[in-house]
């Protein structure tokens, strides 16, 4: 079991990966393979690229992202993912909550007995 494949990274990914996907879509639509490549470029974010597709499917069903087919310069049309208003709201909420959680976890990890920052 390598560092990124252990139980803790896998638990963390489960909760965080979808917000990373939403963040990647904030500025422009992307197609599936492109999203997967950008996520995998940061090794801790995914060990099995194939697991991102079911996640994208759920985000679409929950209305956080939308898909559209666009012609590709080569080969069949590609499915592009775009952020919806609901997805943007979810991302904004996460972006607000995340620093608080990150700081709180850091606090307990570094100085569990000390005063809260």
């Amino acid at each position: 079991m390598n560092e990124a494949g252990g139980r803790v990274p896998s638990q963390l990914r489960k909760g965080l990966l979808e917000y990373c996907v939403l963040a990647l879509l904030r500025d422009e639509p992307k197609y599936g393979v492109e999203l997967v490549a950008e996520l995998s470029a940061v090794s801790v974010m995914t060990t099995s690229q194939g697991t991102i597709y079911p996640l994208l499917s759920r985000l679409r069903r929950e209305g956080l992202v939308d898909t559209e087919l666009r012609d590709s310069p080569s080969g069949p049309p590609r499915r592009y993912y775009t952020l919806t208003a609901v997805g943007l709201a979810s991302l904004t909420e996460f972006a607000r909550a995340w620093p608080l959680f990150r700081d709180a976890v850091d606090h307990f990890l570094t100085d569990p007995q000390g005063d809260p920052a």
Partner: peptide
């Protein structure tokens, strides 16, 4: 190999199906 074990991908699909 990059995609991951078929079993891993399938497990992920099944778990996304019933959060």
């Amino acid at each position: 190999t990059g995609l991951g074990e078929p079993r891993t991908v399938a497990a992920s699909a099944l778990s996304e199906e019933t959060p």
